[in-house]
Structure formats: structure tokens, C-alpha cells
């Protein structure tokens, strides 16, 4: 098992390298770059002096180098004008739009984004698991039909709309401040238990809103998986050995139906990150989503590339977690299909 985990971790390295190259290429795909746009703007305003500064910046940030070299400098595999100062060295780059290092732009947002996504994934599973189970126990029953209706509703209602409605209720009933993940009182306060509690309270609504659509899909999936499993010969065989129904269900079909359910963690994360952008904008959440939107529009290369890479890392981590859980659940993954006896 440990060997499997290590192998799986090592396999992430080439995946990350490939993804980072791809991201860098995609971000640079639109013609021109941030500085070229700025030059145009300065020239239209007739400011010659600014143009000279831009030329300096162009060299400073290696925009005059070929693509692969720029990538290597960004990644920290190749020395730039100031030696090695890329991702591998912990330098996240410079944001032109905010005129600050990327690290300062993002700051707390990274942690909050990870937190929001984690909370959402947990919520998806907390909702989908019991509901899916109950729906599968009595197909066509009250829970099944109710869950189906709710999931369609969750898919059909635009999430930002739902978010606003929920938020206004929450404000009216619980006195939660609208927008943001932190109350104004704690915005600049150092981390404390009270602040953490405040953040958690603010997390519930966005997490619920983002989770709802995914949870609907997951409920349907778990239900279908379970219904597939309950009629398999091995379940009948266990029943024929006199195993009680409750134990039978949890021990056999549930464990097997759980596998594809878990395998979805990896797929869930990226869709949550992209799906949460619009909710984050509407609710003014301090996540990386709105920043990514701004960075992409302004061709802020390093900022956009870094955020995308961060999303990719989240996804890979999710896949790693789901693979490890799968290996725990299913010996065939762990041992391969090799006969031992």
C-alpha cells in the first residue's frame, strides 16, 4: 500500500510538468502580451518616455525570449535576468495588473479557495451519500423522487441567483454580513478561534450553493451504482449464507458502489473551481476566481498561469486522494490481477 502511494505520488511529477507547460502555452496563446497592450495605450496617449520603461520591463520579464525559454524561466528551470527565480524557487512571479508580486495579490485567497473547495466537496459527499443510499433502498419511493426533483432543481437554478436568495435570508435571520468570507470586524484581525468560526459560518452558504448541482449528480450516480450491485450473484450468495440484510447491504454492495463514487473526487474539483468563479464574483468571496477572471482579461501572464496551475494542483491532489481511497477499498487496484495461488 505504501509502495502504491509512493508510485502514485511520483507519477504526479511528470503530470504537473506537462500541465504547467500546457497552461503557460494557453495563457500566452492570445496574440501580444500585457506590455504590448500597455505600449499601445501609452503611444495613443503620446507618452514616449513610458515606452522606454516598457522596453526595460520587456527585458526584465524576458518577454523578448523564445517561448520555451520563457516557460523555463517561469518554472525556475533556467536562469532569468536575475538568476533562478521561478516557481521551483518559490517565486510566484509578478502581477502587472496589480503591480504587486503574485504572492501578495493572492495572499489569503489561496487558503480560502482551498478551504471553500474542500468544504464543498465534503458537503457534496455528506448530502449525496445518505440521500443516494436511501433513494436506492426504495427505488420509486418518497426519498428517491424527492431527491430526483431536488437535483433537477439544483441543476436548473443558476447558482449565483440561489446564492443571493439564500444570503438575503441568512442576513435577515442570522445576521450574517452579505458578501465576503469574513465579517468586516475580522477582516484585518489576526487569525483566532472567533475569526475561524466566523469564516466557517460564511462558508456554509457558498459551499451549499456550489455543492447543490454536483450533489444532485452524485446522488443519481450512487443510486444507479447501488441498484446495479444489489442484484449481483455475490450479494445473493451472501444472502444464501444467512447474512442479515443490514449487514449485507453495508458490507457488500455499498462498498463496491462506493468506488466509482470516490473516483469522482478528481473530476469534481475542477468543475467546482470553474463553477465557483461566478458565485465568488456575486458574493464577493475572497477566492482566486475573480482574480483569475481579471488576470485573463488583461493578459496578466504570470498571475493567470499561477492560478490555473494552482487549480491543476488541486485537481491532481483530489485524484491522488481518490486513488488512494480506491486502493483501500478494492484489493484489485492494490494487487493487480495476478494469481497468487
Amino acid at each position: 500500500m505504501l509502495g502504491y502511494a509512493i508510485r502514485r505520488l511520483l507519477a504526479m511529477i511528470p503530470a504537473l510538468a506537462a500541465v504547467s507547460l500546457l497552461i503557460f502555452a494557453v495563457v500566452e496563446l492570445p496574440p501580444g502580451d500585457y506590455l504590448a497592450n500597455e505600449v499601445q495605450e501609452l503611444q495613443s496617449q503620446g507618452e514616449g518616455a513610458g515606452a522606454a520603461r516598457v522596453a526595460f520591463l520587456r527585458q526584465e520579464f524576458s518577454f523578448d525570449r523564445p517561448f520555451l525559454e520563457r516557460y523555463a524561466i517561469w518554472a525556475g528551470l533556467w536562469p532569468g535576468p536575475h538568476g533562478f527565480d521561478g516557481l521551483l524557487q518559490g517565486e510566484w512571479g509578478w502581477s502587472f495588473v496589480y503591480a504587486k508580486p503574485v504572492a501578495d495579490v493572492l495572499g489569503d485567497r489561496i487558503g480560502l479557495t482551498a478551504l471553500l473547495n474542500l468544504a464543498t466537496v465534503l458537503l457534496v459527499y455528506l448530502i449525496a451519500f445518505p440521500v443516494g443510499l436511501m433513494a436506492a433502498r426504495r427505488p420509486g419511493g418518497l426519498v428517491d423522487i424527492g431527491a430526483a426533483g431536488l437535483s433537477y432543481l439544483g441543476l436548473a437554478i443558476p447558482s449565483f441567483l440561489l446564492a443571493l436568495v439564500l444570503l438575503s435570508f441568512a442576513h435577515a435571520w442570522f445576521g450574517l454580513t452579505i458578501g465576503g468570507l469574513v465579517s468586516p470586524a475580522y477582516r484585518d484581525a489576526p487569525w483566532s478561534l472567533a475569526k475561524a468560526f466566523d469564516v466557517a459560518a460564511h462558508l456554509v452558504i457558498p459551499a451549499l450553493v456550489i455543492a447543490l448541482g454536483s450533489a444532485g449528480i452524485m446522488i443519481r450516480r450512487l443510486r444507479a451504482n447501488l441498484l446495479d450491485e444489489v442484484n449481483k450473484p455475490y450479494v445473493v450468495a451472501a444472502r444464501a449464507r444467512g447474512i442479515g440484510e443490514a449487514r449485507l447491504m453495508t458490507r457488500y454492495p455499498l462498498r463496491l458502489a462506493f468506488a466509482p463514487f470516490v473516483a469522482d473526487i478528481g473530476n469534481l474539483l475542477p468543475s467546482l473551481v470553474s463553477g465557483s468563479v461566478i458565485v465568488s464574483v456575486v458574493l464577493n468571496l475572497q477566492t482566486v476566481g475573480p482574480v483569475l477572471l481579471a488576470a485573463l482579461r488583461a493578459q496578466d501572464t504570470f498571475l493567470a498561469a499561477f492560478i490555473l496551475l494552482f487549480t491543476a494542483v488541486l485537481t491532481l491532489a483530489g485524484m491522488l486522494v481518490s486513488d488512494l481511497i480506491l486502493a483501500l477499498l478494492d484489493p484489485r487496484v492494490r494487487l493487480g490481477q495476478k494469481a497468487r495461488l
Binding site: Y234, V236, A237, R241, R251, D330, P331, R332
Partner: peptide
């Protein structure tokens, strides 16, 4: 006791 035809599918694989 009941013995089934296809022992691979009549045992839980996990």
C-alpha cells in the same frame, strides 16, 4: 447451503 455456478461472480471481489 447453496453453491453457485460461477464462483468468481458469487464471491465479492473486494
Amino acid at each position: 447451503g447453496l453453491v453457485f455456478q460461477e464462483p468468481l461472480s458469487a464471491f465479492s471481489p473486494v
